[in-house]
Amino acid sequence: MNSMERVMTAITHKEPDRVPMFHLFSHYGAKELGINIKNYFSDSKNVVEAQLRMQKKYSNDCIYTFTYAPIEIEAFGGEVVFTEDGPPNSGQPFIKNIEQIKDIDVPLIGESQQLKRVLETTQALKESVGDKVPIIGVVMSPFSLPVMQMGFEKYLELLYFRKDEFDFLMKINQEFCVAWANAQLEAGATAICYFDPLASPAIIERSKYIETGHIIAKETISRFNGATATHLASGISLPVIDDIISTGSAVLGFSEEDNIKEIKEKAKGKICLLGNLNGIEMANWDKKTAQNKVKQLIQGAARGGGFILSDNHGEIPWQVSESTLLDIAETVKEYGTYPIREEA
């Protein structure tokens, strides 16, 4: 099977030849090319070259066109702070007060150099891999984006006490999100990963999510012209798995803190699980630890398909060594071949 066949088989809740593995590389590509992160993202050719190299090197079952979360903030005119050894981060929030919200316009994709670069990257990668490897594009959910737009504290004030302004901002974000997702799909992305960390009950209580973020997710995802994976960026997802299934997502990025047995039962035949290795701890794993973690995860989650092995945050940290990533890939090949063997 090629990567596309392997992944599609898993998503349709059948067992492929082996467990599909997604190493979700974003800024890690700069390490592969030996250049700094800001330079790396300044030219789509860098990302194309690194993604293709890393796909082969690690037998990776996906291409990931995600650059950094605040790329969408740049499109809104906000600031991004680059570091030498980690993901670019959002700077000072550009919404300084809630009254400003009514003056915000939906950014046009074609007017953002950074977003256009991602589309160029996606097109070039699609030309290179065709239908053999799935290309995963990324959007931030309209519900979670305001954490970077206005800061978490102000956003909670908006969410709990300023319904009119909240609804207005959601409309803006929703229009942008749909346009951005569909532009990536049109450029060649196979599916869109909808990052929605605030959907996790660890961040926002389920009752609030149901009356806000969940409705927004359903409306937004229904307007994407392609398949969607929802990712809670290491937040627990078990208590909201049925809600996420009802948004139409085909895949769910679950947390290391979720109970694997329970989540596997709940997901069976309904949503494909993606996860859930701890990327932060991964930076300190030796070979044996990597092997044990992967074997345990395969034992708990792989039977019957409906599972893609990955980290639980949606991004491999810079600090993780290449040898650890290779150990993970090798262990998947050795112990993730279907049918899964019982381990003592």
Binding site: L156, Y160, A202, E205, P239
Partner: peptide, 14 residues
């Protein structure tokens, strides 16, 4: 309650 996964960070904050 948050540590045990029963409550949300937003509830802790608010």
């Amino acid at each position: 309650g948050w540590e045990e996964g029963q409550l949300s960070l937003s509830q802790v904050y608010m």
